[in-house]
Amino acid sequence: MVTKRPDWSTPAAMAIPPEGYFELERGRYGPTYPKTPACHGFSIIAKVKDGREDVVRAYGKTIEETIAASPDALAPLRLHYLRWVLFDVGSGLHFQYQGIFDTDFDKYTEDAVQLFGATGITTVFTNLEGFPEDWKENPDAFIQFVRDHQVPSFLEYGEYPYATADEIKKALRLKAAFSEMLDQMQ
């Protein structure tokens, strides 16, 4: 049986039930979440430990510098986007991590733990209340923290739905090559 590939050329939206899935399917670490028009992703919201706002912000700068020095440093995560937000809802400072990526939830978190271990880079999550101290030796505790603080979205939209980061980069390389060819013809 041939499965039809989703059409990337037509924008798509998907409304998601409060549970975060349509039909319960268990992954290695809990429910699997559907691939949406925005690919896979998650949002984590957790309270920041007292006095750690500057450390969290500095960690953002560390990521910026890491990527400037080594643009492929986060490549194993197959990311499209990351967005980090600090906000206070009246009960203290909270951190929101939003990531959109091409792999499923379980693979992404496993790859993140492995990446942190291989590079020696620590995770910004160490500044969040309830994050396990033994996360490097206990990946299951890391994954449980992520699961416990995951807040499923209820709507996801994709202007170019289901396209992977590699497919998008390939299309942009083709565009650049075509533009260069046209420039040389003039």
Rank of each mutant, 00 (worst) to 15 (best):
M1P: 05
T3G: 08
K4I: 11
R5P: 02
R5F: 13
D7Q: 07
A12E: 05
M14N: 06
P18D: 06
P18W: 07
Y21E: 02
Y21P: 01
F22V: 00
L24D: 02
E25T: 05
R26P: 00
G27H: 01
G27V: 01
R28S: 05
P31F: 09
T32C: 05
T32H: 03
Y33F: 15
H40S: 07
G41H: 02
I45L: 09
I45H: 03
V48N: 09
V48S: 03
D50F: 08
R57E: 09
A58I: 00
A58T: 05
K61L: 11
K61M: 06
K61Y: 05
K61N: 04
T62V: 08
I63H: 07
A68S: 12
A69F: 07
A69Q: 15
S70T: 14
P71V: 06
P71M: 05
P71R: 10
D72N: 14
A73W: 02
A75T: 01
R78Y: 09
R78S: 09
L79E: 11
H80K: 15
H80I: 12
R83K: 12
R83M: 06
R83D: 08
W84I: 12
W84H: 13
V85W: 07
F87P: 07
F87R: 15
G90N: 09
G92V: 06
G92W: 12
F95I: 05
Y97Q: 10
T103I: 00
T103D: 10
T109K: 00
E110L: 06
E110N: 08
D111S: 06
Q114D: 08
Q114C: 00
L115F: 04
F116R: 05
T119I: 12
T119W: 10
T122C: 08
T123H: 05
F125A: 09
F131I: 01
P132K: 08
D140A: 10
D140R: 07
D140E: 13
D140C: 00
A141T: 03
F142W: 03
Q144T: 12
Q144E: 15
F145V: 01
R147E: 02
Q150H: 15
V151M: 04
V151H: 07
P152F: 12
Y157K: 02
A165D: 07
D166I: 04
E167I: 11
I168N: 14
K169P: 06
K169Y: 09
K170Q: 14
A171H: 10
L174N: 13
L174K: 12
A176C: 08
A177E: 15
F178R: 10
S179L: 13
L182Q: 14
D183E: 13
D183M: 08
Q184Y: 12
Q184K: 14
Q186F: 11
